[in-house]
Write a protein that binds this DNA or RNA. Structure first.
Lengths: 174, 174
DNA sequence: AATGAAAGCGGGCCGAA
DNA sequence: TTCGGCCCGCTTTCATT
């Protein structure tokens, strides 16, 4: 109880008139960040429920969500699947050492494999980093064999995840 | 609404050959996997649209989705946010070397930080692996300083992502 | 197929620039 | 005054039995 019927005064500090388009920046106020955090956690909530949590009306929440989608802050809404239930209990991070950066293009073909979840080029002694999820060690071995078939690499180092304590997507600062 | 086994298994791919052997794996037929792949890509599609893609009626799709949620194959529906738009352009993988596994508990406190996206214990020379996303190198340094403040570690190695070519969640085999 | 709920849309109000 | 954000009506669409 004791819900303050008093709505937090609308301090609209949004300067949406910044005609200078910054591709990688977005003007987010406090309510935006809270809304994004809620949607990143569970996107099935109704706008009415979000409005209660944010002290806003449902259409107002809808407007903000629409704007955030249009600006690309919200890239999409996806279903989070359980890897173990999909017969992929083995998670591994594979560091790939290459002699030249030209090999990078070859590795991008791995995108076709549903085993591969992430592909990054990274700094450090290894050139690329893969996050893969396979059914068992044999499937992982097959994947590594496929990487080794590509010319211009010097080796791979795999780190098999024993326990995953946290796994989530990007979320705002709050 | 009795759950009798009168499922339209005209060409039943849900055979019992491989079932009942793996406890955490779910029994999924071809349509289930296709549906999961579609939902993992975009969960905003309507059931009617999914039905057209799967050659099923909308209620049939709804029933399958409900079953998959109940079984935990679909853990939830979340909004995918753009890290760069959230002022987190710097992605890094941090390998943490520890002397004893007791330190693991300390690192779990990092879950509170929104910078930290993943925490795993892994095999290999390092004991733990973190996926972190920060605003800049200074924020990363602060995070590393916080890790170093914990006793029982021998060091960290960070791999900063230069380019991310692929980043997605678990998806079925198809 | 029918019902109930939620999303989507326009109008008017209010505060700030 | 203009503009942006919010609230409140109604209409349409979808989920659900």
């Amino acid at each position: 109880m004791t819900t303050n019927a008093r709505r937090p005064s609308t301090r609209t500090a949004r300067t949406s008139r910044t005609s200078a388009l910054q591709p990688s920046a977005a003007a987010l106020d406090d309510t935006d960040r809270k809304l994004l955090a809620l949607l990143a956690e569970d996107a099935t909530r109704t706008y009415a429920e979000l409005g209660k949590l944010l002290f806003l009306s449902a259409p107002a929440v809808h407007e903000r969500a629409r704007r955030l989608k249009r600006e690309g802050v919200i890239k999409g809404t996806v279903a989070a699947l359980d890897a173990a239930k999909l017969n992929r209990p083995l998670l591994a991070f594979v560091h790939v050492d290459t002699t030249s950066w030209a090999v990078t293009r070859q590795l991008l073909a791995l995108e076709e494999l549903s085993d591969v979840e992430e592909i990054h080029t990274v700094t450090g002694e290894s050139a690329m980093l893969l996050k893969v999820r396979t059914r068992d060690t044999q499937s992982l071995e097959q994947l590594l064999a496929r990487i080794h078939a590509i010319e211009g690499f010097t080796g791979t180092r795999s780190y098999i995840a024993l326990t995953t304590y946290l796994e989530r997507g990007p979320s705002p600062d709050l």
